[in-house]
Design a protein around this nucleic acid. Structure first.
Lengths: 218, 218
DNA sequence: GCATTTCACTTGACAGCGTTAGGTGAAATG
DNA sequence: CATTTCACCTAACGCTGTCAAGTGAAATGC
């Protein structure tokens, strides 16, 4: 092994080790985040879990928000994949129904991430540590939703007063988001008999689609 | 003036002064809360605004959460009043429609209060400083909503598969809550063309009622 | 082969937060 | 006139995210 090869090898090892530490931070943060929520996910708790000092994290992530956003973005790729598969469905109305359920399933399976991205004030500036803009998870999903309702409108599937794609998309997104988020925040309210959120959303989507269709089948 | 009269008078003055301070705390907290949000509403900021030290607040309120809950509860009485007026409407379907709009109007006019009570994890233990349970604002409103959808179900207004009052109530509440809260948190997302939330909710309520009715009129 | 530079990480701190124990002084009470 | 009450203050605690300045081993340069 000549000196040049050694050089690149050790440089590669250094980069690999740095990447490993970065991964360890993300993994520790995710465990805390999922198990205990955002408040318990302190820089000190993350660091303690991986045997570093809190300030070490700042050599890998700009600040706590950037770390948590990157963590969530990684998990939101599953939502993107789920929506992508549903995109193959031809009928825009059936596609909308399936998208709604997939969205709800994702939210209910990734509560902490969903809460952080969609249920807290939008203060994330969505820049990574190099200052590059990262695409927020709602951007793709919203474009997808908009495309689906637009196709339905163009196909004449919906009632004429529902001609505004943005309004229809925001109705749909908002309604599902609402059942999910209300349940997440208030499921342990003792004075409300909560229906299983997935069933409630199933009914909600059915009702909304029926109410939006120009010619509902029965 | 005899001694007994003086005694009661000065005692009354002392109580009045304490009540005034308490009111001043609540007013200062509300101003900060509405203008700057919950994070900027620090005990120190409230105290500075009324010329007291932060610890003085703890002689009037158990902790910050109790103070903010009492503040919000006071404002939520307007929602209760609005719903009470709507309760006079005979037709349970029309009543439901009007309740939905009143709920949305209240949320959009009292953003900080709504956010604090319904868009943050339910950690409020709903006890006042004497340990008495205070009725959370959703309790009455939910009972009202439940009553209204139940009447509709009993009158045979809705489709037979929508026979579960809790599910129907939670669909309705959740859907409106979702449009409101999504808009509150993401209205300044640059990549989404937001429709005015009130119009979106109007359409949403229309679509949901049409989709839920057994015999929609056209 | 030795001096220099790089850089992942640590030490020690800062400001701000909610909250509390203990003190103070004027007013109410006996 | 002595005692008690109590609204409010002083000073602090532990917690948070974050940063400036170091440290020491590995990589590099001559």
């Amino acid at each position: 092994m000549n000196t040049a090869a050694i050089r690149t090898a050790s440089l590669a090892r250094r980069e690999r080790q740095k990447a490993e530490t970065r991964r360890a931070i993300l993994d520790a943060a995710r465990e805390l985040f999922v198990a205990e929520g955002v408040d318990a996910t302190t820089m000190r708790a993350i660091a303690e879990r991986i045997g570093y000092t809190p300030t070490a994290i700042y050599h890998h992530f700009k600040d706590k928000d950037t770390l948590l956003v990157e963590l969530c973005m990684a998990d939101f790729r599953f939502l993107g994949q789920a929506l992508y598969k549903i995109g193959r469905i031809e009928d825009p109305v059936e596609r909308l129904r399936r998208m709604g359920m997939a969205y709800a399933d994702f939210a209910l399976s990734n509560k902490s991430q969903y809460r952080f991205m969609f249920m807290t004030p939008m203060r994330h500036n969505m820049l990574d540590e190099d200052g590059n803009r990262v695409k927020p998870p709602d951007e793709d999903a919203y474009a997808f939703l908009l495309q689906t309702v637009s196709e339905g409108i163009e196909a004449g599937a919906y009632r004429p007063e529902l001609s505004e794609p943005h309004e229809l998309a925001q109705m749909t997104w908002g309604a599902i988001h609402g059942v999910v988020s209300l349940w997440m925040n208030h499921a342990d309210d003792p004075h409300i008999q909560w229906s299983p959120p997935r069933e409630t959303i199933r009914s909600l989507v059915d009702v909304m689609i029926r109410g939006a269709l120009r010619n509902p089948t029965t």
